[in-house]
Design a protein around this nucleic acid. Structure first.
Lengths: 338, 338
DNA sequence: CCACACTCTGACACCGGTGTCATAATGTGG
DNA sequence: CCACATTATGACACCGGTGTCAGAGTGTGG
């Protein structure tokens, strides 16, 4: 079975390959008759154009790379889903590249990626969207990129984020309004800018409601379920025990819930628990977790869409947006019983 | 900033581009002096070879496509993780392409994918690994592919699966050995071959232990949490209520657990619950779910590894393997209390 | 000192498309 | 019927690498 190229089609149809190319790309200035003829040969020969050759000629791969390093599988799939939506809309495809921020050599890793696969652009998700080093490297290499949920201020590059600080403020305020005054907090991974932002929101809510911040109520997590379990132990062992726990994401909140349940504590009667992200697990467990829903898909979709616009037209103004996070109230939070 | 190509390097280093190409690919027959010189110019000019041009010349893209349509995010990420491991080992990259088996036009969708991105091969995960139509299409197009968890018997194509029937048998037997005789079953999505296999394992275990199969104990799910919740309602409403539920995956099992807990039923005292897959949620909830662990990453890793071998050398014998699934006992199953 | 093998290098075609430009064919208005 | 604009088509270079092959340079054994 011989390969069918544009040349075979051209010969077979009795036209030049440029004309075949015109038909392929729906260019004008092809007579209807010729177009028909060529299209018929496409069918007959079962011709599929070679995207690589096209890519070489146009200096495009039509592939976007997606960088992430995140323990949350639901976050990753939401990112992928938003990115794919934008990609497919513009006939791009998505190549995934999970890697470690603190790996021995992030830059070398990315350099190798670019050697093995030409990418027209890259979407950076946390913590990469906050890596000054990586951003400098991409700029130097003239690689287009878009930042998702990045805290870095850089007017030159595309950025779509959500308001983490405000979300954390609102959920903390929600607990305060219920009557909680002793609210523990579990921090996220220190490499993620969201960690600091959520912590700030928590502190601001306390301050604005005249509740003294107590550092012994703060546990250091890293967004993983496991770290949540460790933090849960430390918090539930406190005496007096806080009446509420706000974990920086739902997995850690789920870990608190699990340990509380194991210890025969009733949630939310004995202790209220709040999370962040509105991951699927938040509604897959009982009681469902009060949390903050972030438009992860939408952030990524917008970021990739703008990235593709920028690739197609360098003149596109740099897009920067902040989307709203939204409080979702479920059964895991209530008035303190005492 | 001008583009640095192999030509600029060649001119700058005072050698032919073929020699530069030799250095790039670590080919023999380059004098150490020349090699050094060229390598130095690489650094000086900050040269990165163009993978697209290389791809065109070699007729390779070094990209594997991954097809899936699965509601379980943990399954997807495990698949991706296994596939990536194999890809990176061989300097390949992974392009993801979720799509719908029952979408209006699967074949057109894939055809379009191949028009926008040349893939050296594809990994098919369920339910695509069971689609005769897709497999016929890929064969016709001469696209290499590997099947993961496929029930189709096709000695011509790579296949790595795990023993679902046996896993379902063992977990059912585990329940029977605990003393359960009334065991409800929640089926998975009808498009997935695993659904039928797990169901068969359940039935075989009942039969071999002389327990009559009762069709009213079987609910139709589709692997989604939501379908599990519906099935849970049907099962928990039964009178008499079965003493155990075996759901075809962990998400559906989690839904049963949640509803049972909401109804004040104690798990496992009042009702035992078992799942399948050993998804993260199985250990993130309380009580933890007894389930079957499948080597999803390993299956995919092997499939992709063999796929790449086949791409590099058509003579490679077709690899077919069946890996073992393993029973994981957690707190959600125990002796029936009555 | 010569025949022969082996190492090193470059010229050139080629991969399968797209962009530019010249030219042929057709249409239009005066 | 002609000058001129417009449409349709193809020749050819080019994208940035790799494969083939010829030839120059070097080494070895008889």
């Amino acid at each position: 079975m011989k390969k069918v190229t544009i040349n075979s089609v051209a010969t077979y149809a009795g036209v030049s390959k440029k004309t075949v190319s015109r038909v392929l790309n729906n260019e004008p200035n092809v007579s209807p008759a010729t177009r028909e003829k060529v299209l018929k040969v496409f069918k007959e020969l079962d011709y599929t154009p070679n995207p690589i050759a096209r890519g070489l000629a146009r200096n495009r791969s039509f592939i976007i790379g997606c960088l992430y390093d995140n323990p949350s599988k639901s976050y990753i799939t939401r990112v992928q889903s938003g990115a794919l939506e934008a990609c497919h809309k513009h006939n791009y495809n998505l190549l995934i590249h999970p890697c470690e921020l603190r790996g021995e050599a992030l830059i070398e890793n990315i350099e190798h990626l670019l050697t093995t696969s030409r990418l027209d652009g890259m979407v950076l998700t946390p913590p990469f969207s906050d890596s000054e080093e990586l951003i400098a490297f991409l700029k130097k290499k003239n690689i287009h990129f878009a930042r998702v949920a990045s805290a870095i201020d850089d007017a030159e590059s595309i950025s779509v984020r959500s308001n983490d600080e405000q979300g954390a403020y609102e959920i903390t305020e929600h607990l305060i309004n219920l009557g909680h005054t002793s609210i523990a907090f579990i921090k996220g991974h220190p490499d993620h800018s969201a960690t600091e932002q959520r912590f700030t929101g928590y502190q601001r809510a306390l301050a604005e409601h005249n509740i003294a911040f107590k550092s012994h109520l703060v546990a250091e997590g890293n967004f993983s379920y496991h770290s949540g379990a460790d933090s849960a132990k430390a918090i539930l062992d406190l005496n007096p025990r806080p009446s509420a726990v706000f974990a920086s994401n739902d997995y850690m909140a789920a870990a608190v819930l699990k340990l509380a349940t194991q210890r025969q504590l009733k949630v939310p009667e004995d202790i209220s628990i709040a999370g962040f992200d509105n991951a699927p697990i938040a509604r897959h467990i009982w009681p469902g977790l009060t949390t903050i829903a972030q438009p992860v898909e939408e952030m990524t979709r917008q970021a990739v869409e703008q990235l593709i616009l920028q690739i197609s037209d360098e003149q596109t103004p740099v897009y920067q947006a902040t989307l709203e996070a939204k409080l979702i109230t479920r059964e895991s939070t209530a008035k303190p019983s005492c």
